[in-house]
Amino acid sequence: MVLAKTKVLIAASAALALSVFGAQHAAADSISDIQSEGTIKVGMLVDFPPVGFMNANNEPDGYDADVAAMLGDKLGVDVNIVPVTGPNRIPYLLSGQVDLLISSLAITPARAEKVDFSAPYAAVRIGIFGPTDLDIAAEADLSNHVIGVTRASGQDATLTRIAPDGTTIRRFDDDVSAVQALLSGQVEAIGVSNIGMKQIHQIAPGKYDEKFEMNRFILALGVHPDDGEMLDYVNVFLGEIKASGELEKTYQKWFEESLPDFSGVVTK
């Protein structure tokens, strides 16, 4: 078993090395292109506070915006934040409309086939969340219930995988609609992140609680698979701001907890 795993790892790193080599030829000067243009286009979710949201001045703000600003400083360029949604963020990256995703992107095997992930930079827990009197304690209890999720989110993928037969899953286009569906009673419970739960507690104190934890996601920056130079660059960048304590400070500012330990996380 251990041997098999090692073999897979060797194969994966070989594939990674190959793809990096192949890619460097295709987009060898992406960083210098960005520097000569003077702007980097960063795709960011703006409906996922405190990671990404529009502040009172209608400007993108939050943890992702701070990380993007730090990256812009290191590159010496302006940051042009392009608001994206959960379903369209990877298409934005692959079609070249943004140079990089700093968009609460969780590392999943399906996504790893389409984009390259940087080193981890944040973590989010997701769970089933519903009215306090709703009697659900585990996956098996979901049968015959109507659960809302955000389409193409980590909650969607996890719930689709674990939900027993007879569960009705309703998919909404953004987090706000999913929360709205819960508040208006159009779904019995929703799959939502710990951050989302905190917000709902603020809107409706004491009415809802977490039924059980579904999954834990490690977030990373998303890089175009042909852009090996960008991948190397952001990994060096993340290493620097982790070492200097800047990332820790920013993480505590938005999440009110310490940056989790990412050792052992596989990003490919």
């Binding site: 692959l94 079609s95 996504r111 086939e113 193409a152």
Partner: peptide
């Protein structure tokens, strides 16, 4: 469109 969006979220083959 919902079917298309769901399929896109599974395959990312937009």
């Amino acid at each position: 469109t919902a079917a298309g969006n769901d399929l896109n979220s599974l395959t990312f083959a937009s």
